[in-house]
């Protein structure tokens, strides 16, 4: 077990290292592209450190942009899952809720979250509300779909078991429906998180005065590719960190493993 883990760590590290090496070779050794548009890993690393304290050319340090983005993402995301997961569960369990909500949901769902941005700017300006709303829209959809599907896939025999033990319909939902849908719900939370970051960057590029997306956009205008990459890498790292937190939570909450 331990050996396997070590092997896994070694291969993962080697993979990242190889990627950096190839990048370095293309940028610095063979100079395939001009370094202003294709900076080497070292240049990006330097820019990263510099951006921690320097506010030019985009009006903020990396930390300030990151906090601005996190605020928006977490607000929109949390709202999205707090509303989406229970709604999906109720739609999956109660036929009446399904009949009422499903047609509306099916109509709204195909509209890409980014398509909401213009209307949100018009209604709410370019502050946190507009962006958080767009992120809410992106996060709520996968949260609903996965909770709904998870509940629908509840093994009917499990429901019988609960009923023969005298559980009411609501108790059956709490004690059987939700625990059995939990792995699916978590999968949805992860998809929602990814969708939230995507929507964030798009929203900040179009309508913002701060945040990582805004930072990327500003640096494009002044042609600083290294700062753009700093922004992208930060998004990648923070996204991975948040996913890791979710997975740790999942391991704590989803018990017993699943296969029938």
């Amino acid at each position: 077990m331990k050996e396997k883990k070590l092997k896994y760590t070694l291969i993962s590290t080697a993979s990242v290292f190889c990627f950096l090496l190839i990048w370095y070779l293309i940028a610095d050794v063979f100079k395939v592209f001009p370094s202003s548009t294709f900076p080497s890993p070292f240049k990006v690393a330097t820019a990263f450190v510099r951006k921690l304290t320097v506010t030019t050319p985009d009006g903020g340090t990396l930390g300030k942009h990151l906090i601005a983005s996190l605020k928006v993402v977490l607000l929109g995301y949390l709202l999205g899952i707090v509303i989406g997961v229970p709604l999906g569960i109720l739609m999956g369990w109660y036929r009446r809720v399904d009949l009422i909500v499903k047609p509306l949901f099916d109509l709204i769902r195909p509209i890409p979250p980014v398509g909401w941005i213009p209307l949100m700017i018009l209604w709410l300006g370019i502050g946190i509300q507009a962006k958080a709303t767009v992120i809410f829209v992106s996060a709520v959809t996968p949260a609903i779909i996965n909770a709904y599907t998870g509940i629908k896939q509840t093994n009917p025999v499990h429901i019988w078991v609960a009923r023969t033990f005298g559980a009411s319909n609501f108790e059956t939902l709490l004690k059987v429906g939700i625990p059995s849908a939990l792995p699916m719900i978590f999968a949805g939370l992860k998809v929602s998180l990814g969708a939230s970051w995507m929507a964030l960057v798009a929203a900040e590029m179009l309508a913002s005065t701060e945040g990582l997306g805004y930072m990327i956009q500003m640096n494009r205008m002044v042609g600083k590719a290294d700062n753009i990459m700093v922004g992208m890498i930060t998004i990648g790292l923070v996204g991975a960190l948040l996913t890791y937190i979710l997975e740790t939570l999942e391991k704590k909450l989803v018990k017993g493993g699943r296969n029938k």
Partner: peptide
């Protein structure tokens, strides 16, 4: 009822599964 395929709740331990009926009661 004892079912064809075991139909145990995979998210509960043996104790949790056996104690499910009394819990509902």
């Amino acid at each position: 009822v004892v079912y064809q395929k075991t139909a145990l709740f995979p998210w509960l331990t043996v104790e949790g599964n056996v104690g499910f009926g009394p819990k509902m009661a």
